[in-house]
Design a protein around this nucleic acid. Sequence first.
RNA 1: CGAGGCGUAGCGCAGUUUGGUAGCGCGCUUGGUUCGGGACCAAGAGGUCGUGGGUUCAAAUCCCGUCGCCUCGACCA
Length: 476
Amino acid sequence: MAKNEGFVNEIADIESDFPRWYTDVVVRTKLADYGPVKGTMVIRPYGYAIWENIQRELDARFKAAGVENAYFPLLIPMSFMTKEAEHVEGFAPEVAVVTHAGGAKLEEPLVVRPTSETVIGHMFGKWVESWRDLPLRQNQWCNVMRWEKTTRPFLRTSEFLWQEGHSVYATGEEAEAETLAMLALYAEFAKNVLCMPVLTGRKTEKEKFAGAVATYGMEAMMHDGKSLQSGTTHYMGQNFAKAFGVQFTDKDGALKYGYTMSYGVSTRLIGALIMTHGDARGLVLPPPVAPVQVVIVPIAMKKEGVLEAVGALAERLKKAGIKVKVDDTDNSPGWKFNEWEMKGVPLRIELGPRDIEAGKLTFFRRDTCEKGEMGSENCEEAVKELLGAISVNLYEKAKKRMEERIVNAQTLDELLAGVDGGNFVRAGWCGERACEDKVKDFAQATARVMDEKNDMPVCVCCGKKAKRTVFFARAY
RNA sequence: CGAGGCGUAGCGCAGUUUGGUAGCGCGCUUGGUUCGGGACCAAGAGGUCGUGGGUUCAAAUCCCGUCGCCUCGACCA
């Protein structure tokens, strides 16, 4: 079979030029395009449909867990940002500030939200009065702005879409439990919806959210072995509650501060999908979030009965709840095959006179790039099964790859060799910031998350007794 | 902010060295033949050459300025 020589030239080689491959794929498959302002992007319908699918799945999970949706304002008074000392220090360099409005200079500058802990803390402070008001658990789907120096579509843009959930509890234990529960929710979602294996765990002090007591992260391994932080949850203790007066009268009559936590995932997840599953031909989308799950390519469309048969098949699959698209454009079949493969559609069905004659369908699995045949009777079930099998295979393939590329290191040289080879490196760490910094200097790798297991005896950097075992990696 | 690169038709580029009618491929439009791995024929449409100034009979091309974007670093979901 021909190997698509002409077509792969449209995108850079995935092995030798992965960054280029990534942006080529994003633009060429119409997931997104660059916006007119530096660092901004337009999420085009094909990309936005993926986001809508992500939203639908996550939103259902949040609601099932008892979280309510709300919406808080884009603009935050500058003075709010300065109320939590660590928070302002962390975010000040990257906030955009509105200084003029209505043709006049504003009395107080307004910050375009980089995250909403402050304004939500302010409102929660008004709403929480009694232990009966707790827990208070709200989430918003919105945009935020962080003026980053280096940007890349989906991975890091000045403005991005996300959800941020914020909760207040009466006790620290409950808030911490929720922080871990949301991390688990994210990991389950990553596995079952994005077909993406992740490492979860607590972040080091250096890597934690500005203003948090503890940050937990979900990290995924990209095609090149680098790590992408794909979701975070934060336990704030009473830091924000004290800064914004989130107080309640407890059962015992005492006035107490609440304990808060927050959690978020963003459109970066789309970048994670692309870089986890993609291959030399382009995107490979997991069936649960693919805007088109099955594309039907008619062969010899003008021959009698072909389009009718294709239309009838599409109707049947639609009725079965499958997202189907018929490509009846004038392009040649070969062109369509390559196009839809680049766009990552999980399953393609070819239907031509030969198939109709024989009462069968020819299909192509995007994950394995293998063709097969099935009878056209009861094909709904067979297609559903195939989509399920593709999901499982994508997850298993990615999981195997990640597991094979986790190596242990005892020394800095081993650690460097590990990350140079595109691995996640497990290593002991004494807990000192200086050693973490040195690892970064030496190997351009950062502590992604701390392992629950603590089996590496000595610090990879200073050789003293290790307090934790840490996953180090180069990160996006 | 540091270092590189690029702005010429929707996209990708050539033309700039040596100033002289604005080009190529793909895409797009119309008609026709095709259709099982990027088909073909014919006819068309489309550009203040990023932008401001300067030199010149003449500037995409030379000079000065300026703006924007991309990539790579330091910072980050």
